[in-house]
């Protein structure tokens, strides 16, 4: 079992990816108590945005040079779609029974996925995504792919930036206040509409970063990738305590680790030899979600559980 360090590294990398997407769920949920099902699709659209930017550049452009443009384009696509969704789909439903925005979110998710499938050239199958050249980087106990470097750098940067934004800026603090008590926040003169849009936008930007990380890690993007990624990211948000932005990242890391370890080691457990391997990793992630809900529903860091009484 000497590959444990390798498995841990794999798990953390995967987890950081989930964590970045989970930020979007957790921020929006913290403020409007809405599970934005379409967030997985916003992640996916970021991936296609980045791919589009890359294809604009002359063929053979080094990925490293292309990256800034790709990041900008991915963010622009994701943020625009997220803000549009907020403005035209969710905002009119504020104050409606809570089923309505959830169903809208599902409709939006399906529509976005299908729009890419139908209108993006050749998107009916996976499209190759540029990768960094060169083999894996050996770090002694374990090795990571070259594409993972992007994640290793981007994820901590994103978290630091977010932490700074939330604690130091006016908007960030207003956001905290709104997530704790929207009505009072409104009374205090906070423009909740703007806060909500900001939350959607930040979530989308993080999803866009995650999409590029996903692209360079796996070397492809496809129209379906948002569904499972979104589900996992939501699980991560719940694990960390929904509404808690640091919790989302920690939940992501825990989920990633659990998935990597389950994939690698579960088949060694007597009686479960057939339930290991990659084919079952989603199942184990889901079992983890159920267990957490059963044992610690408020999540690892969270405190809020049920409705406001």
């Amino acid at each position: 079992m000497n590959d444990l360090p390798q498995q841990l590294a794999n798990g953390l990398l995967l987890g950081a990816l989930y964590g970045l997407i989970a930020i979007g769920y957790t921020m929006v949920y913290g403020i409007v108590q809405l599970i934005n099902f379409a967030h997985g699709e916003i992640f996916m659209i970021g991936g296609f945005g980045a791919l589009t930017a890359y294809l604009w550049l002359p063929a053979g452009t080094s990925l490293l040079f292309a990256l800034p443009l790709m990041i900008l384009m991915a963010m622009a696509c994701s943020v625009l779609v997220a803000m549009g969704a907020e403005r035209f789909a969710y905002r009119p439903l504020r104050g409606a029974p809570r089923l309505a925005p959830l169903i809208t979110a599902i409709g939006l998710s399906i529509a976005l996925q299908q729009a890419i499938w139908a209108f993006y050239p050749d998107a009916t199958k996976s499209r190759p995504f540029p990768e960094f050249e060169g083999g894996r980087i050996d770090l002694g106990a374990f090795a990571i792919g070259r594409g993972d470097l992007f994640l290793v750098i981007a994820a901590p940067l994103c978290m630091i930036a977010l932490g700074f934004f939330v604690s130091k800026t006016r908007t960030g603090r207003a956001m905290q206040a709104t997530s704790q008590d929207p009505d009072t926040a409104k009374l205090m003169g906070i423009n909740t509409d703007r806060i909500i849009v900001t939350a959607f936008a930040i979530g989308a930007a993080f999803a866009a970063i995650a999409a590029i990380a996903h692209g360079v890690k796996y070397g492809e993007v496809n129209f379906k990738m948002g569904f499972i990624a979104g589900l996992k990211a939501f699980t991560a948000a719940v694990l960390g305590g929904i509404g808690n932005i640091y919790g989302a990242m920690i939940g992501g890391l825990v989920l990633g680790l659990a998935e990597a370890l389950a994939t690698a080691y579960i088949e060694n457990i007597p009686g479960m030899s057939q339930l290991g391997g990659g084919a079952w990793k989603d199942v184990w992630a889901f079992v983890l979600l159920i267990l957490v809900l059963l044992l610690r529903p408020q999540g690892l860091l969270g405190q809020r559980v049920a409705d406001r009484a």
């Binding site: 169903i103 809208t104 409709g107 399906i110 529509a111 996925q113 299908q114 139908a118």
Partner: peptide
């Protein structure tokens, strides 16, 4: 058939907006 699901998704959104 290529646009069925797309239309389905859009229809859900419109339904919730106009005749929930």
């Amino acid at each position: 058939s290529d646009y069925q699901l797309l239309l389905f998704g859009i229809a859900l959104i419109l339904l919730m907006r106009f005749r929930p």
